Lab assay of single mutants.
Amino acid sequence: KITVTFNGEEKARRYYKKMQKHNLKVEIRVENNQWVVHVE
């Protein structure tokens, strides 16, 4: 499981979509004013 933190929504969403293309289970959320993407 990987957790990647971004300081911008745009970058986070781009990464999220990229990971989805690989058929990975991805989850995006905001934690402590940071955009966090969890990849299983």
Rank of each mutant, 00 (worst) to 15 (best):
E40F: 15
V37I: 05
E27R: 05
G8W: 09
K25E: 06
N32W: 05
E40W: 15
I2D: 03
E40I: 13
R29Q: 08
V36W: 03
E10P: 05
V36N: 02
R13G: 02
N23K: 09
V26L: 05
H38M: 14
F6Y: 02
V26H: 00
I28P: 00
I2A: 05
E31M: 08
I2P: 02
T5S: 08
R13M: 13
L24R: 08
N23F: 13
Y15C: 05
G8Q: 15
N7Y: 10
R14V: 08
V30R: 13
N7W: 10
R13S: 03
Y16I: 06
N23M: 07
T3C: 14
K11D: 15
E40P: 05
K25I: 11
R29C: 12
E27H: 07
M19K: 03
K17Y: 10
N7M: 10
F6H: 01
R14Y: 08
E27I: 11
Q34C: 12
F6K: 01
V36E: 04
E9Y: 14
V4Q: 05
H38I: 15
V30W: 12
I28C: 07
V26Y: 00
G8Y: 12
E10S: 10
G8T: 15
Q20W: 05
K25L: 09
R13N: 05
K17S: 08
L24S: 05
R13V: 08
N32Y: 05
F6S: 01
V4E: 03
N7E: 13
I2M: 10
K18L: 14
V36S: 04
K17P: 01
K17R: 12
G8K: 15
K11C: 15
I2V: 10
K18S: 09
Q34I: 13
E10Q: 10
V36R: 03
V39K: 01
H22N: 09
V37P: 00
R14Q: 13
W35F: 04
F6A: 01
V30Y: 15
K11F: 12
H22V: 06
Y15K: 02
I2F: 15
N33V: 03
V4G: 02
K21Y: 09
E10L: 11
A12K: 01
Q20I: 14
H22R: 14
W35E: 00
Q20A: 09
Y15H: 02
H38Q: 13
E31R: 05
Q34D: 03
V36M: 05
R13P: 03
K21Q: 13
F6N: 01
A12R: 03
K18G: 04
K18P: 01
E31I: 13
E9A: 08
H38T: 15
E40Y: 15
N33G: 15
K17D: 11
N33A: 07
Q20N: 05
N23Y: 12
N33L: 05
V37K: 00
